[in-house]
Amino acid sequence: MHFLVVFRMVPDVVEELEVAPGGKSLETEYLRMIASESDDHALEEALLLKERHGGSVTVVAADAPELDDALFSALAKGADRVVKITGAEFGLSTSRMAGIVAATIRHTPGLLPADLILTGTQAIDDLDGLIAPLLGFHLGLPSLGIVTSVECQPACGAAVVTREFPDGVRGQFEIPLPAVLGVQAAEKPPRYVPVAKVRAAMKSGRIEEVPAPEPAVAPSLEIVRMSKPVPLSHAEMLEGDPEMAAAELCKMLAGRGLL
């Protein structure tokens, strides 16, 4: 079976985010990018499915800072091919990126046919849409998001998929293959790959580069301005060492009739 994983780099929010002088985008000086968390899960799920059913895993991603490390790491974890799309311009628009990725997947030989396309269900910069349904739309494939487990039944050309609902409830769906899945969490936490293996992958592995095809006209997103949120309210902070603050808190809560 052939599994395709679509990867994305998003800003690493461990660093303080600042607005660039233009007021419409992020300041990039100290900006670090990290693989979107649910994309890591999507890759893990793909690797687990490969272990179960055999086949290959290909990772596709649009070029971004620090992407190479993530791609070599994917190779070290067990991906068979990693493909980087160069020259793609999409700003903060997931829908634009989805169009570019879909077009690249269609035009690059060897990527299709895929049995399953897996990606993260949502990323922190999905301002204008989620990538899984958009990929499904562009590629004419069914899609389902918030997936937490996948059971492929290649003989029937379908997969049984579990998706999350509220209150801890999950729903089981049957989806025909090929399909696009937005993964919320893999069946096991993303595996650890030792630095030595990643470095070995850097030496012996190869990132294929394909240029982005001419972008189709994508719905445009117009950002008027970007700013740090000013919280509407803020908690009343209680000072002092834990004992003092605890006593103060008790007083406050008793005053509200809560104790």
């Binding site: 919280p231 509407l232 309210s233 803020h234 908690a235 009343e236 902070m237 209680l238 834990p242 004992e243 603050a245 605890a246 006593a247 808190l249 008790c250 406050m252 008793a254 104790l259």
Partner: peptide, 27 residues
């Protein structure tokens, strides 16, 4: 802290026992 009504900057492992003690005393 933007969503809370009261906030304490402290290690939860230190604060919670202190608060438990204060609650017990009050009760």
């Amino acid at each position: 802290f933007s969503f809370a009504h009261y906030g304490i900057v402290a290690d939860a492992i230190e604060f919670l026992p202190a608060f438990t003690e204060a609650v017990r005393k009050r009760k």
